[in-house]
């Protein structure tokens, strides 16, 4: 086929139909969120003492930190799928979010006697945390990856990893409402580990499915 012919076909294919990712990715994510919410309600549910817990700084920090990571991760996934977009500001934002997590840990080191550190770190249900966050992330990750296939990621694994970060931390925001462990030690260790698992899964899936 001559390039002339190809251009003719491209022109005939007409004006743009695809929405920008800034529109389509949130729409896909909303569909994934329905699945995630359903899993949360059916499998986990709110912790019984949520009213009292919501009065404590430790509890409130969880959705704030995880929500911040999710927002930054989602924006990062969009930017990574749009060639020529800068990601520097978002990477700096992620550093700030990580700093917030670290500040919580330092606060806990000061507030809690050393003898209790171990118990706070181990918590009461680390295994449930490690299983639940990837479970809640799964519908979101599938939806986000599906949306990113419309994009043009120059580094498919990185875009997939950003989708994993978004999905895991959005799932973790919800999971925090179930999880009885509020210590920043617990969050920094187990939430991060569960998130890392999903980020790696996202990167592998991205390398496989986001090539174009």
């Amino acid at each position: 086929m001559r390039t002339d012919d190809l251009v003719r076909a491209l022109v005939a294919d007409g004006p743009i139909r695809e929405r920008p990712l800034a529109v389509s990715l949130p729409a896909f994510a909303a569909v994934g969120l329905v699945g995630t919410l359903a899993l949360f309600v059916v499998v986990l549910g709110l912790r019984p003492d949520i009213g009292a817990a919501a009065q404590t700084v430790r509890f409130v920090l969880k959705p704030v930190e995880m929500g911040l990571f999710a927002a930054l991760g989602g924006l990062l996934a969009i930017r990574l799928a749009q060639p020529g977009s800068s990601t520097r500001g978002l990477v700096a934002g992620l550093a700030v979010a990580a700093g917030l997590l670290a500040a919580g840990v330092v606060g806990e080191l000061v507030a809690v006697p050393a003898a209790d550190w171990g118990a706070r770190l181990v918590g009461s249900n680390a295994a449930v945390c490690l299983a639940s966050i990837p479970l809640l992330a799964a519908p979101l990750l599938a939806a986000t990856l599906w949306a990113l296939r419309r994009g043009a990621p120059l580094h498919p694994a990185r875009a997939g990893a950003a989708a994993g970060l978004f999905s895991a931390t959005a799932g973790a925001t919800l999971y925090g409402l179930h999880c009885p462990d509020d210590s920043p030690f617990f969050v920094a260790a187990w939430y991060s580990l569960a998130t890392a698992v999903v980020v790696v899964a996202g990167a592998l899936a991205g390398r496989r499915w986001l090539r174009w």
Partner: peptide
């Protein structure tokens, strides 16, 4: 050219198209 066509919605039309 095919990629330009199929992915043109990933260009932010508020910016110059060259870097994209």
């Amino acid at each position: 050219l095919l990629a330009v066509h199929l992915k043109r919605h990933t260009w932010d039309a508020a910016r110059p198209i060259g870097p994209w």
